[in-house]
């Protein structure tokens, strides 16, 4: 009838071997840069040299510099941490309030609201920063005092990012709500007693992503903290170390800073990985 060169099982085995090889190569490519980063963080030789990977001299000097009074690193770290803390609470609250209202209720302005938010989202986010900077400036919440300003900026409009939460809530059967109402609960009680407890995975996902956000935010932080070293967050601060004027001296410090910033986030991520994956695979696309 047909070729008998390879039985089905043998064919599958070769395919699997090739797959394993590819996966191993992929894993290497994705991990290598971080391994290099960590290695260079421990190199206390010439702090500006970007070329060598293997440390010229092993030591913790770079880390010491970060924590010394010469660098603003601690300040930046502290700033970012505070912002992230407030952001994860505030953003989660805002997003879920919006998502719940849009998912569970039907009111006349519902579709127009969603459309308006869709349209507003099409404008580059940065556009709002120009105005907000002036306003916050007049309120004294910029430059050195950038942190409160950034917190406000991060939380205030976060309701627009309701899509993942709403997608998830849409999949919860409304019969739960109805049963609770028959039992005599007000809509508020349904919200915090019945539905929200069931959203634990998505809540954790939202908390996680909103916590991680401020650590990597460059554009907003750079705008609001304009002109001040004290008000920067880690992203803007570390980037300033790498700008051409400074690169002579600061490259290794940057690596060390990167390691310090990355580690807590990675640990947090490791523990909550399950929720993150669930949020991405479940909610991110349904929206």
């Amino acid at each position: 009838m047909e070729r008998r060169s390879m039985g089905m099982a043998a064919k599958r085995r070769t395919a699997n071997i090739i797959t394993y090889v590819i996966l191993v190569m992929i894993s290497i490519i994705w991990i290598i840069p971080f391994i290099f980063l960590i290695l260079q963080a421990f190199d206390v030789g010439n702090p500006g040299l970007t070329g060598n990977v293997w440390p010229e001299k092993w030591g913790l000097g770079n880390f010491a510099y970060l924590f010394s009074s010469e660098s603003n690193f601690l300040r930046w770290y502290f700033n970012t941490f505070i912002i992230a803390l407030f952001a994860c609470v505030g953003q989660t609250a805002m997003q879920f309030m919006m998502a719940y209202a849009l998912s569970r209720f039907r009111f006349k302005l519902r579709k127009p609201m969603m459309n308006v938010m869709l349209v507003l989202g099409m404008f580059p986010g940065f556009l709002t920063m120009i105005v907000l900077y002036e306003v916050l400036n007049s309120l004294g919440m910029t430059s050195d005092n950038a942190v409160p300003g950034l917190i406000l900026v991060n939380i205030a409009s976060s309701g627009m990012g309701y899509y993942v939460a709403k997608g998830f809530l849409d999949t919860m059967p409304k019969s739960l709500d109805e049963a609770a109402e028959v039992d005599g609960a007000t809509k508020f009680q349904v919200f915090y007693k019945v539905v929200m407890p069931l959203c634990k995975p998505i809540v954790i996902y939202t908390v996680l992503t909103s916590f991680m956000g401020p650590w990597g935010d460059y554009i907003f932080a750079a705008t609001i903290a304009k002109g001040s070293q004290e008000g920067m967050n880690v992203a803007t601060g570390l980037n300033s170390w790498l700008s051409t004027a400074n690169i002579g001296g600061y490259y290794k410090y940057f690596c060390a800073g990167g390691v310090i910033v990355a580690i807590p986030v990675i640990i947090l991520f490791l523990f909550l990985q399950k929720y993150y994956v669930e949020g991405v695979t479940g909610g991110a696309v349904k929206g």
Binding site: M1, E2, R4, G7, M8, A9
Partner: peptide
């Protein structure tokens, strides 16, 4: 009459 253990479904 032909042994088909190793044949693909489409064959």
């Amino acid at each position: 009459g032909e042994v088909v253990n190793d044949l693909q479904p489409k064959d």
